[in-house]
Nucleic acid binder design. Sequence first.
DNA 1: CTAAGGACCTGTCGGC
DNA 2: TGCCGACAGGTCCTTA
Length: 270
Amino acid sequence: MPELPEVETSRAGIAPHLVGHRVARLVIRQPQLRWPIPANLALCLEGKVIRSVARRGKYILISVEGGAALLHLGMSGSVRILPAGAPAAKHDHVDLVLDTGSMLRLTDPRRFGALLWQPENELHSLLASLGPEPLSDEFNAEYLQTCCKGRKTAIKTLIMNSQLVVGVGNIYANEALFQAGIDPRRAAGRVSAQRLEQLVICIKQVLARAIEQGGTTLRDFVGGDGKPGYFKQELHVYGRAGELCHSCGSILKEVRLGQRSTVYCPSCQR
DNA sequence: CTAAGGACCTGTCGGC
DNA sequence: TGCCGACAGGTCCTTA
């Protein structure tokens, strides 16, 4: 479900319900996520006031005195604010119960998500080697050109590499490359500097626009406020293989790159 | 070092 | 209707 826009939508949706409030209890029904939830996490959080709810890449950081809970939604995770005590369904793995009578509930059918602990003044190893935020100035044409130099990897695979830039998942990689007019299969090192400059602009535009729209709801994604995302209406290639290009009318093609579905217009993208 | 593939897990969908 | 394989928003880890 979540790429950066969906994570940011979730973060923004839950933050007002959490910040400034005290954690009454952490209820863990299923600790086996991608990594086990640390046994001492409840002790780290209970009784503490939540200071901030931030985001780094696709991680949500819920900070309290002493550290931060790191939350990753994986492929199928989502969070919602509910009244404390709402009945739990099959994949409702964790509740962060607040002293307000509300709780944050984590649901994740595939359990590729994670809930970990990062002590204050330490950088969790999962965050240590992440690339820059795509919407920051640090992610610019010059930077991407350096990343691509000499690389034979397909440009799409490269922009999805979180060590180089975070937050660009399969949907938005497809969309950004369409907007930039670049064939996703093209070796990164063989994309001209000018077109990489364009790609940076397109990645930023697509992500920013998707955040404005509350993310992309494919199946049942809803933000922390329970509303679906509306960006799906603006998708040009993702999920549209065999349909007509919105720009030139050609039939969109599909290939696999790094085992991910890749859709592009053979006429507009070179 | 880079690149490619498998692994993790459950639900859904299309085909027979 | 039922079964089986393929596929799904991520990304770490192993292997070559």
